[in-house]
């Protein structure tokens, strides 16, 4: 009994720490959704490309930190590129085509990654030790700590920039009311592009911290997109604190259901939660209800 409880707690803790990375990817959705009411259905591919870029850079002999920075720069460019090529075009035509276009661009990234880096999963070397720390019988690896700290740090950093720099406030203004922001002299297109670039940075960074845990391969994209979507949708696109909470809960539930029902079922509870959550509360647990205007 006692042992079982401990095992479950162990599962929950390591899953929860990993869940913070899902929250970080979901945070990328929140950024772009706030700015331009669109999200990238190929966000997982950006995570994957970020991880591959980091991997290649550290393969070139660069230290880990430099490789991560390089990946983030690549992420910014890729995020900006998706907005410029896919999203803005579709929104100009006033339809939901952006969903398709982001999927299509993601498909292209996938194919490119397959051909450039190959289909096999590759390990991502990291500078910290493989050993684990022990907290009251629950072991936490340095790797898991790094994921949690990285995700938390990145989200805090972006959130601080959003709230306490003029440009961050301007981006928030664009999400609140694009026309009014333009009237204040804020270039809303630039603000939206910036949001996508930052979202790309978050995704690429997430790739470099998830990569060491899951190994890096083209197929890591699809599963991650879905998990991050689940987090974003269940939490509602509007509360970063909600994202963290739901992310941790999802990570923990994944591990526990994998442990109790078998590894094939890992993702099932999260998906059921997503469908039920959407049906009961479309605006998300922490979201605000939207008023229809006529």
């Amino acid at each position: 009994m006692n042992l079982d409880f401990l095992a479950l707690a162990q599962m929950a803790v390591s899953g929860g720490l990993m869940g913070m990375a899902y929250a970080l990817v979901a945070y990328g959705f929140q950024l772009t959704h706030a700015a331009g009411k669109a999200v990238n259905f190929g966000q997982g591919e950006l995570v994957m490309l970020g991880a591959f870029t980091g991997l290649s850079l550290s393969g070139c002999g660069l230290p880990y930190w430099a490789a991560v920075t390089g990946a983030m720069i690549a992420g910014a460019l890729l995020g900006w590129f998706v907005e410029r090529t896919a999203v803005r075009l579709a929104l100009q035509q006033h339809n939901e085509g952006w969903v398709l276009l982001t999927i299509i661009v993601g498909l292209f990234w996938f194919s490119a990654a397959e051909n450039i880096w190959g289909r096999e999963d590759k390990p991502f070397p990291v500078p910290w030790p493989e050993s684990a720390l022990d907290f009251f019988g629950i072991s936490v690896t340095w790797q898991e700590l790094a994921v949690a700290a990285g995700a938390l740090g990145m989200m805090t950093l972006i959130e601080l920039a959003r709230r306490y720099t003029m440009i961050g406030i301007a981006v928030q203004a664009v999400s609140a009311d694009q026309d009014a922001a333009e009237l204040c002299g804020i270039r809303s297109r630039t603000a939206i592009s910036l949001s996508w670039a930052v979202s790309g940075i978050a995704a690429a960074f997430a790739g470099t911290i998830i990569g060491p845990v899951t190994t890096v391969g083209p197929t890591m994209a699809a599963a991650l997109t879905l998990k991050a979507f689940s987090v974003a949708v269940v939490a509602g696109l509007g509360s970063s604190f909600g994202l963290l909470l739901v992310g941790v809960a999802l990570g923990a539930s994944e591990n526990i259901s994998g442990f109790l029902l078998g590894s094939g079922w890992r993702e099932a509870p999260a998906l059921i939660l997503l469908i039920v959550g959407l049906a009961l509360r479309p605006q998300g647990l922490f979201g605000k209800k939207i008023i229809r205007k006529v």
Partner: peptide, 20 residues
């Protein structure tokens, strides 16, 4: 449940259904 939703939310719920 899913068709009460629109746009990306609908796409997501169908995506989860598919994976499930």
């Amino acid at each position: 449940p899913a068709l009460r939703l629109e746009g990306p939310q609908f796409a997501l719920s169908t995506l989860s259904f598919a994976t499930l």
